[in-house]
Write a protein that binds this DNA or RNA. Structure first.
Lengths: 137, 137
DNA sequence: GTAATAAATGCACTTCCATTGCATTGCCCT
DNA sequence: AGGGCAATGCAATGGAAGTGCATTTATTAC
């Protein structure tokens, strides 16, 4: 297991104390988190810092942003070696309408779609909504 | 071609003047519209009325709401006979990163996805992003 | 036709999240 | 140690969604 600070450095992100905390918080979590989730996890955190931390993480491909249709952006760690912008690497997300949590289904890739002439897809976002394994059990 | 007012009545929506205008505006357009788009199309329109008109339309399955990831909800007419909430009826949307427009690709349905045990999908949203036919031509 | 009722509209206001400006602090490199 | 850039914290803004309430318009009952 590569240490968090080395990992962030390898991604071109300076491993400050706050960034390490945010990274480890996301790493521990199996579900995508909102900015507020993260803010509430640390008593002394500032929204803006977290916001910019996540923006930086996103640019450096440490996390990806998920719009699950709830109206609030969520963030989750990228998989190792993933190249979030490439269509082939895009996994889908599951949003549970019961508990409100959003889960990366990293095993399931978005199927290729044949588009009409003239359309060139560069990116895709697929969110399934329903009941998650915990809530249906 | 069934008249707009009869159509709205058949959907259980009272065909007021404003509602007819909004309906026809959407019918003329090939792309999904934001609330602001519609507001700007009519000089004397009130945001709230339009907002509630669209909510009503949505409930009565006259329009469907599209979250294309731009952060602003868009609206487009439902196809005839469509049952927007059913997974099999879900078409996908294409968001052009050049012109910003969002298009319903009603011919393309969202492929069925096999989910892990315990997950039950009720709904799906698939948005492809890239360059549309007009911008690539 | 008129009164009573319900639906739709318009204005003002609130809320929530995303985002930016700016001053300050902290880190790194020489 | 000092200069410079990156990161941080606070305050404020912006944009869109949504709500409350009074007013107007349409529908129904009498």
């Amino acid at each position: 297991m590569i240490p968090s600070d080395k990992f962030l450095e390898s991604k071109g992100v300076r491993p400050t104390a706050m960034r390490l905390l945010v990274f480890q918080h996301l790493a521990k979590s199996k579900v995508a988190k909102t900015l507020s989730d993260i803010e509430n996890a640390f008593a002394k955190a500032d929204r803006t810092t977290l916001f910019r931390t996540l923006k930086t993480f996103e640019q450096k491909r440490v996390v990806h942003q998920i719009d699950d249709g709830s109206g609030i952006m969520k963030y989750a760690l990228c998989e190792e070696g993933c190249n979030c912008e490439l269509e082939r690497d895009l996994h889908l997300h599951f949003h549970c309408t019961n508990c409100g949590e959003t889960i990366c289904l990293t095993e399931q890739k978005i199927p290729h779609i044949n588009l009409p002439d003239g359309f060139v897809a560069e990116n895709a976002n697929l969110v399934l909504k329903g009941i998650c394994d915990k809530c249906s059990g």
